[in-house]
Design a protein around this nucleic acid. Sequence first.
RNA 1: GUGGGUGUAGCUCAAUGGCAGAGCACCUGACUGUGGAUCAGGUGGUUGUGGGUUCGACCCCCAUCACCCACCCCA
Length: 426
Amino acid sequence: MKSSVQAVKGTRDYYPEEMGLRNLLYSTARAVSESFGYQEWDSPFLETLDLYAAKSGEELVKEQAFVFPDRGGDLITLRPELTPSLARMVAQRQRQLVYPLRWWSWGPCWRYERPQKGRTREFFQWNVDLIGVDSPQADAEMIALAASFIRQIGLQPSQVSILVNNRALISSELSRMGVPTEKSKQVFRLIDRRDKMSSESWEAYALELGLNPDQLQGLKNLLADQELWRKSPDLTACFDLIEALGLKDYVRFAPQIVRGLDYYTGTVFEAWDNDGEFRAILGGGRYDNLVAAVGGDPLPAVGFAMGDLVVSLVLKKFKALPPDLGASPAKVLVTVFDESSLHSSFAVAADLRRHGFPTAVYPEVAKLSTQLKYGDRMGFWVILMLGPDELAQDQITIKDLRRGEQQTIPQAELVEQLRYLLPPPA
RNA sequence: GUGGGUGUAGCUCAAUGGCAGAGCACCUGACUGUGGAUCAGGUGGUUGUGGGUUCGACCCCCAUCACCCACCCCA
């Protein structure tokens, strides 16, 4: 029934199955990051409020971050994202680090928001950044790394795409249409909302911003122009490299992607499920001003972040999750027949562990059907049985649950048989 | 911060204001050495909580808490 003490609003409990998914995301993020030569870093979960006030949008931080005074009265923030901490750490050692930096991180972040589908107050975020280089090659690598993750986690190009644009390209097109530079920030916001509003209210919003009808039509043409990227040398080079990396199927140009944040300066990208059912799976781009914003010297950078929630929803939707997330980490279960054979069962289990096979042994004497059912439900691959019949002849029975077969063999051949039936020992 | 919805068995959900139910899960047995499948039986409830209306409340009303969805926002 309902427990009297509840979990904190917006948090999740990680039962073994959910922990399996969390670990899958983490291990995949790690594997992909490292395959591109990125190093893991981390920061404190607690930061000063000042760190986030240094960025634009300080009002959002005050309203959406967990902020509380420490005993000395300083305002402490539970980190709502990783990038400001990264910028702080880079600025602190800016002269001693070896560039380009290839850094990745994974960890919990907190935002004080109303929980809803795909959004909790505590979540995990994967962050990847390439710092110190201002080149389309760097942009291409970042997009390719994101695409590699999507492929590695088991999502197909028919299911998920990475949409790429360039803010500098859109800016120059806007000024060519006579949109004043001081309006570009608002127009980016307008573009960002294109798919979130009805076309009538979107056009009304555009005219409200002061666009004339010609400029509005020009903007609509712009957003419909799938070949616009050819006008951008950066995007042209970027797409060419992504093709060389063999990931072109996941990536396409999308002029409506501009990102909501103000600090992006060039290439921007987001990964979406192709039905547009959820929010962006991941998002990022080039941000060449952020390190300077926290007190360092100007340093170009490109990166992206991915929360654990939306990608999990997408994986569930496409049934791309491995079926054994809640299974026992051991593949072998040794049953216990009766009091007199208990010692032998435990000895077999110990011997298998010494040979590198993770092995569980049933922890009490119980009916065999109970033990088999347990083994089945916990996802073991093989169950070992040794009762009076086997023990009398130094034999053991191996039941292969996945094939529904069993055989009785000399105990001396057990390890050899398991090497055949199981993944290689650790 | 704003609006809407839902709270009934472990889970998913039924039940004109009139005996609180089903499916799944679980336990037992059919099957004293064999999981998944089938069949039979069984355990399981202060209907979120507190008030009110009523002869009578899961149902109507008020309050409260929790969760969900959307808006807002998304670093």
